[in-house]
Amino acid sequence: MPGTRLGGKVAIITGGGGGIGSAAGRIFCAEGARVALLDRDPAVVEAAATGIRDGVPGAQVIGLVADVGEEAAAQVAVDAVLREFGGVDVLVNNVGIRRYEAVADAPWAAWDDILRVNLLSFVSMTRAALPALRRSGRGSIVNVSSTGAVFGRKGMAAYDASKAAVLALTRTMAFEEAEHGIRVNAICPGYTRTPFHEARMGPAAVDALVPPCVLQRWGRPEELAFPVLWLASDEASYVTAATLMVDGGFPAEGGGTAVRSAV
Rank of each mutant, 00 (worst) to 15 (best):
V259R: 12
G87R: 13
P107S: 12
R260C: 11
E235H: 10
S121G: 02
I182K: 03
E70V: 13
A104E: 13
A36K: 00
G55M: 07
G249I: 00
P189G: 03
P212C: 02
E177I: 06
L224W: 05
D247W: 00
D89K: 01
A132M: 03
E70H: 05
N143E: 07
V144W: 07
C188F: 14
V65I: 10
R135L: 07
A30P: 12
R26P: 05
P107L: 06
P251D: 04
P212G: 03
R171L: 10
P57N: 09
S22P: 13
Y159H: 04
G86F: 09
E179R: 14
R83P: 06
E71A: 15
A128G: 03
A258N: 07
A104K: 04
G248I: 01
P211G: 00
E101A: 14
R220N: 06
W230I: 08
A208M: 10
R53F: 11
V44D: 08
G63C: 04
Y191R: 00
A252G: 06
V142C: 04
V35L: 06
G21A: 11
D79W: 05
L6S: 06
R83F: 07
R127T: 11
W111A: 00
Q75Y: 08
P42Y: 09
A158F: 11
E177N: 13
S162A: 11
V65N: 02
D234S: 14
T170E: 08
P221M: 04
L119F: 14
A23C: 08
T243H: 09
A43P: 06
A199P: 08
G190C: 02
S233V: 08
L64K: 00
N143I: 06
T126R: 00
V56E: 11
R34Y: 07
I20Y: 08
R171K: 15
T192D: 01
T240Y: 09
V88T: 06
E222T: 10
D113I: 09
G63T: 07
G86L: 13
V44S: 14
V123F: 15
Y100E: 08
G86A: 11
G155N: 15
G58H: 12
V103I: 14
A102N: 15
F250T: 00
G202Y: 13
A36T: 09
A149R: 02
I13T: 04
G63Q: 05
I97A: 04
G137Q: 04
D160Y: 04
I52G: 08
L64R: 00
C188D: 08
R40A: 09
L120G: 02
Y238I: 07
T50S: 15
G55H: 13
F250Q: 00
V123A: 04
Y100L: 05
F196N: 02
S22V: 12
V103R: 01
G7H: 15
G152K: 06
G19Q: 09
D54A: 15
L120A: 03
R135M: 08
E198K: 01
G155K: 10
I20N: 06
V123Q: 02
